[in-house]
Computed example of a mutant assay.
Amino acid sequence: MKQKLYLWIEDYLFFPNSLQKIISFLLLPLTFIYMLIILIKRAMAKEIEFAIPIISVGNIIVGGSGKTPVTIKLASKYENACVILRGYGRISKGLFVVSNKGKILVDVKTSGDEAMLLANSLPKATIIVSENRIKAILKAKELGCKIVFLDDGFSKYQIAKFNILLRPKDEPTNVFCLPSGGYREPKGFYAQADIELLEGSDFKRVISIKKDGIQSEIPSQTVLITAISKPKRLLEYLPNNIELISFSDHYDFTLEDISKIQEKYKDYSFLTTGKDFVKLEKFNLKNLYLMDLDIKIDDEVDFSLMNEYIESFNKGV
């Protein structure tokens, strides 16, 4: 029942049917209030300079659009890089250094799934989770980091930064902001980006299937277990006979959840994403496969503005 509810909500936010469109229109007064608050916050924000290059990788829709893998791809090119994120799904509060130049310092419950994925994927970087991004940036400087990447930092108007916005290849048919639609900020805000990257054109997801770190084939009977936003988007990379079991975004799997799935699908193998894998590996599933995600950025994408921005700090400007 919960799985159907999550999928219904995501359909409502992005690709509503006739009934969902009616509900969306009825909620428009709340959407106008929400948009007014957003516009006031943006107009009143006074940018703070930190004397360190800060690259924000964000989007303006609810849920995933490739922020984390794009951040990994970009941050991997720099020495002494720090990635800062809120740490959704963690049980902790406040600021935590998840990894310091590759040394992992906390567990996944403290860090959250995305932060642990970043820590595992960036063995030379520093990863910090904090609700307060300003405190996290100051901590990054204290730790000697030379460049900061903000995962999902577009809405942090008070931080002077270089904004990269990711745009989905399948634009939502529901163009309204919350709660009438799936946009967190007005669609026109794409114009505020320093660089806009369109999925399918400027960047593409490259999926490989791995078992115990080795590239493998998907068994004929396989169940995909995931707790990411818009889980049905994963199915386009998989054979048609794959079954999907989805949980709410950032859900922390329990032993009871896994036991029920194993009982129902006794002769099946299981497949999951990198973000989910960091939470599932504690259950020691022997037949667990990984959808390993990489990002291929088109060679024609012009990053000269970003490079000039970063270089300006190296020159002391």
Rank of each mutant, 00 (worst) to 15 (best):
L178M: 13
L30R: 08
D170L: 11
R233S: 06
L122Q: 05
E199T: 11
L7C: 12
D113G: 14
L238P: 00
L235Q: 14
N314C: 08
G94D: 06
E49V: 04
I209P: 05
Y251R: 06
Y88N: 13
E171W: 08
L234S: 05
N80S: 10
T126S: 10
L28K: 08
T222I: 09
I38L: 13
E79R: 02
D249F: 01
M291G: 02
L280V: 10
L305C: 00
L305D: 02
D294T: 13
L288F: 11
G66Q: 15
K260V: 01
Y268D: 02
I207V: 15
L28Q: 06
K232E: 10
A115C: 04
F32V: 10
Q215A: 07
L198E: 08
T272I: 01
D11C: 12
N287K: 10
S246P: 01
T173H: 08
F189S: 14
L165K: 09
D113A: 12
K21F: 04
R90L: 01
L28V: 07
I52V: 15
N120T: 04
L122W: 00
V83Q: 02
Y289E: 00
G87L: 07
D202S: 08
Q3V: 03
L290S: 02
E281A: 13
V70Q: 08
L285H: 09
I38K: 12
I38G: 01
I22L: 15
I61G: 00
L271S: 03
P123H: 04
D298A: 09
D107M: 08
F162I: 14
S248E: 12
G94S: 04
N174T: 12
Q3Y: 05
G63H: 11
T68F: 00
S76M: 06
E263P: 00
P179Q: 14
I258V: 15
A125P: 02
D299V: 12
G200R: 13
Y183D: 05
I245V: 14
L255F: 10
D276Q: 04
V148A: 05
K187S: 09
P123E: 05
I242Y: 11
Y268T: 03
R42N: 13
G89K: 13
I128S: 04
D252P: 02
N100M: 06
L30P: 01
T110I: 14
F303Y: 08
K77Q: 13
A75G: 04
I22H: 08
K156T: 09
V98G: 06
A191C: 03
Q221R: 10
I104S: 11
Y289P: 00
R167H: 13
S130C: 15
I48F: 00
K204S: 10
M35I: 07
A43E: 07
D292G: 07
V317M: 07
K275R: 05
E236Q: 09
Y265K: 09
A193K: 14
D249W: 02
D299P: 00
S246Y: 05
K315T: 09
V206C: 02
V148W: 05
I297V: 11
L165D: 07
F14L: 10
F283K: 11
P219G: 14
V97S: 02
E47C: 02
Y6Q: 11
I225E: 02
S121I: 00
R233V: 07
K187L: 10
F154P: 03
F149L: 03
M35T: 08
M116R: 09
S220C: 05
Q221H: 08
E263L: 03
